[in-house]
């Protein structure tokens, strides 16, 4: 296994095939959770957890899954890990769990995870599937945290809950839904520019 290939598989999830800005997947959660950096980090972790383990299991089973039922199988696998991360977060980090609310169970319909199972994990080795999952998960988390940073700093004057400036008039709209749409639109535009 040459390490250049591994590196490529990992890096593609960050830039060229960034799941959020490039492939346009997983948008609902990105828009909704990006009001605070702390919550964004929790969401990124939860999503990556589910993605990695789903990819592992789907890859392990890849030669046994009858093609006709592969979608239901993916769904059961992803839903299982989503529920596991839901229960674990509720038990060990209840505050973040409460802030993320309904978006934790919604990880199961996060298009990124199903897309990677279908497009990659079912055709590749477990090791490569893990690399793919880590790259995609990281790409997702990074975008989520960038947007959350922009929104929290300009809209609330804080970062991870810590007040940054003294007397600061926050740009309220950033914390509200329109702020999310506008930020992500601009970021997508920038990403397109960069890729040229």
């Amino acid at each position: 296994m040459n390490s250049k290939k591994i590196q490529n598989e990992f890096v593609k999830g960050l830039i060229s095939e960034n799941p959020v800005l490039g492939l346009m997947l997983g948008l609902c959660s990105v828009l909704a959770v990006s009001t605070e950096v702390k919550n964004a980090a929790g969401m990124g972790f939860a999503m990556t957890f589910v993605l990695v383990f789903s990819n592992i299991l789907v890859s392990l089973l890849r030669n046994t899954i009858p093609p006709k039922v592969r979608l239901p199988v993916f769904i059961v696998v992803i839903a299982t890990f989503t529920t596991i991360v839901d229960l674990l977060m509720n038990a060990y980090v209840p505050e973040i769990h409460k802030n993320l609310g309904i978006f934790i169970p919604l990880i199961v319909v996060n298009c990124i995870i199903i897309a990677r199972a279908e497009a990659f994990a079912v055709k590749n080795t477990v090791f490569m599937s893990v690399i793919d999952a880590l790259g995609m998960g990281l790409g997702y988390t990074i975008v989520l945290m960038i947007i959350a940073s922009l929104r929290e700093i300009t809209g609330n004057g804080t970062f991870w809950g810590i007040k940054l400036f003294g007397d600061f008039s926050p740009i309220l709209i950033m914390m509200l839904p329109p702020g999310a749409f506008i930020t992500i639109g601009l970021l997508m535009g920038i990403m397109r520019r960069v890729k040229k």
Partner: peptide
């Protein structure tokens, strides 16, 4: 529309504007 904003980015910016209206 500038090339890099075509299609999806502009869709989001538009959504943002509509969201402001809905506020």
């Amino acid at each position: 529309i500038p090339e890099s904003l075509k299609s999806e980015p502009i869709a989001f910016l538009t959504a943002g504007l509509i969201a402001i209206a809905f506020l």
